[in-house]
Design a protein around this nucleic acid. Structure first.
Length: 303
DNA sequence: CTCCAGGAACTCC
DNA sequence: GGAGTTCATGGA
């Protein structure tokens, strides 16, 4: 169990704990796995990201070997953020394991470039809707659409005064809309948020959720990741890539390997399309995937 | 103007 | 069962 100091700053409660070895908040919240966290400009910390998850407004910050979680009690750390940040996962062991999987020089570079990324455990329902929106779309616009849905159909979240003071008013303060809320506005309402051809997919997902045909958290307990992919693909608009993202980013399925256009390019460039299979990376293939995605997508120096 | 984005459904053979 | 096309939208 993590040792924590709970502190107060007026009405603002926050916790301070040992920073997980190697954790890089910039990479973790900027690598495309989540869409509702933004850098806090002018933060006194070395790095700080504010966002909404699990219906709460929260801010993560690092200084040296300390991690601060603002607007969280110690109790909430144990019940929510410990799981969200997957604090118990040992990335030094994962990286050691991945390093033995291939001789590829490019992958070695990708690992080094992405070192410090931590795969989050988001809410399966939010991941389901978010990654349906992600198909044939780009990250800035995915964020826009999600934000529009949250502002229109989510609930306003109040911040302690002391926190509001150093959080820019551009940042979101709305919870992710519930399946009931999205279902009630119908396909037309969802389309009006500029979700495009994905509106009918989102609506289909809410129908299956509300009728009990679908529990996006169910794959957490399944025997295999392939089973989880098959299960999630029953939703219209969910194919292998979207299902793999949901499994990797919200169901602790670290072998799920989402293949998008960036990963496709990376596989062709670095491995050759014929021979390559994610299986070479074993049970941490999804984390290897995330290193490759981040390297291919953000490292402009890789040609 | 065309091309592209953390794809998948649909339509043809 | 694979290959090609279509789907909204906005930025480059």
């Amino acid at each position: 169990m993590v040792t924590v100091a709970e502190r107060k700053l007026g009405a603002l409660t926050y916790v301070c704990l040992k920073r997980p070895a190697g954790l890089d908040l910039n990479k973790t919240f900027d690598c495309g796995q989540c869409f509702r966290f933004e850098r806090v400009e002018g933060s006194p910390h070395e790095a700080e990201f504010f966002g909404i998850a699990y219906g709460r407004a929260v801010s993560f910050a690092t200084d040296g070997d300390l991690l601060y979680i603002y607007n969280s009690t110690a109790e909430e750390l144990y019940s929510i953020w410990q799981n969200y940040l997957a604090l118990e996962v040992d990335y030094s062991e994962i990286d050691k394991s991945l390093a033995t999987c291939t001789d590829s020089e490019a992958f070695k570079n990708a690992m080094e470039y992405g070192s410090g990324i931590r795969i989050l455990n988001q809410e399966p329902y939010e991941a389901l809707i978010s990654f349906i929106i992600s198909q044939n779309n780009n990250i800035p616009r995915i964020k826009q659409i999600i934000e529009r849905l949250c502002r229109s159909y989510g609930e306003k979240i109040d911040l302690p005064e002391e926190m509001e003071a150093h959080i820019s008013d551009k940042l979101s303060l709305y919870s992710f809309p519930t399946a009931e809320a999205l279902n009630s506005i119908g396909v037309e309402g969802i389309f009006a948020a500029k979700t495009g051809f994905r509106a009918k997919y989102i609506y289909d997902a809410t129908e299956k959720l509300l009728s009990g045909q679908l529990d996006p958290a169910l794959p957490i307990g399944m025997e295999t990741t392939d089973e989880g992919v098959e299960y999630l693909c029953r939703v219209k608009g969910v194919g292998p890539k979207v299902a793999s993202c949901i499994l990797l980013f919200s169901c602790r399925r670290y072998d799920a390997f989402p293949v998008d256009v960036w990963i496709k390019r990376a596989m062709e460039k670095y491995f050759g399309t014929e021979a390559f299979t994610p299986r070479i990376f074993g049970k941490y293939a999804g984390i290897a995937q995330q290193y490759l995605f981040y390297y291919e997508r953000y490292n402009v120096g890789n040609k």
